[in-house]
Design a protein around this nucleic acid. Sequence first.
RNA 1: GGUGGGGUGACCGAGUGGCUAAUGGUAGCAGACUGUAAAUCUGCCGGGCUCUGCCCUACGUAGGUUCGAAUCCUACCCCCACCA
Length: 418
Amino acid sequence: MTTLIDTLVDRGFVQDVTPGAEARLRLGAITGYAGFDPTADSLHVGSLVPIMGLAWLQRHGGTPIALVGGGTGMVGDPSGKRHERPVLAVDEIDRNSAAIELQLRRFLAFDGANAARLRNNADWLRDLRLMDFLRDTGKHFTVNYMLQKDSVKSRMDTGISFTEFSYMLTQAHDYWHLHVTEGCELQLGGSDQWGNITAGIELVSRREGMQVHAVVFPLLTTATGAKFGKSESGNVWLDAARTSPYEFFQFWLNADDRDVERFLKLFTFLPLDEIAHIMQAQSAEPAARVAQRLLAREATAIVHGDDEAERAVAASAAVFGAGMGEADYAALAATMPSCAVTRAELADGLALTEVLVRAGLASSKSEARRGIEGRGFSVNGEAETDVNRRLAAADVRQERFILLRKGKKHHAMLVVDG
RNA sequence: GGUGGGGUGACCGAGUGGCUAAUGGUAGCAGACUGUAAAUCUGCCGGGCUCUGCCCUACGUAGGUUCGAAUCCUACCCCCACCA
């Protein structure tokens, strides 16, 4: 029988495991957690790795716990950070936590015998009394031990506040708390979390005399060496309002050939033999990019649902295919980033530079101007080289749409109101 | 508390009185080439405008010297190292 650990290893999720973890995972279903920081009001594609890890855990009969860091977020994790981070306002943390909780609900099943659980460590960390914390948790760690951790060691030159120094203890406390109250025996996280996670394992072992485990994921980079999920117009978010389903789909479609197999394993639920099959077709005819298409379709469906995925497929075909003339602009507008303009504005003639900024295709009018001079923009598929171009009623297609494009890949739809 | 070193654009890092919106590299954007890939080459890369030019903002903060300062002076803030 294929166990959780086999699946995780075979699909490229495992960078490292704690001693004994493999043996425990072969014994049967387990309750495990992964944490998500409320540093923004949306998760991004990078969070998909632990999310998929939890989903596989559930598919193998385990009980997944998605933990939102409303408490730890007040402290700030120094792992992987070269400098001290500013603290977020509490109401911002709370807003972000609520948004993230909502997103996490989509990926796990919250019914059945091994229903997923959603927790927020604000519930136990915020009211924790300092003296209790120092006696019950702090007493189990020497400063010497804490100084050994990479997250601390690497900051000895640039400085680290006591707050961030203490972070690992708050996360350790989480693991202990989830172990005692929920029977949690496994933590999943990025490899940069190794130090924090092992501190938690240490704490459970000392306070409860129990052995708990961890699996850490490799740090994802692309074949070109760029940080994963950081291309396009910034971060690739899971929130449709921040990254439209069409843009999300395009992000995956543009994956490098060298990355696509790895991504299929990590970001889809497709069986491995099917992936092997697709990769054969891919190498037989790379230009067709069947692997990227499948990856984009599947990943978009997991995050935004089947309907949105289909819409993104159709929109991509329309925009990049030959049949742009036939395209259904209304359908494109539904999946692409769009921006409203009024008929009155259009009657007066809307400066293209201004509209490009409003639609988010340029960050300033100067940039828009330079882009036009460099032949980077087009209106309804026609390259525009006139910096003083004004949009008018004649530019409107299918009653109320104007398609703007930046470069080859970035689109925005103007929707005329009123 | 003392001594020394340092704070330059998204990042790294030049620049010690005018030629500096500030060399170079990275990242980013666009063009060519391609497969909506990679690599390579070219252009752009603080903001605004009535745009072969003009205006505003910017070299930790606040003042000062000077016709003119990122560059000199003063005070303050912050970081690092060593000492106490």
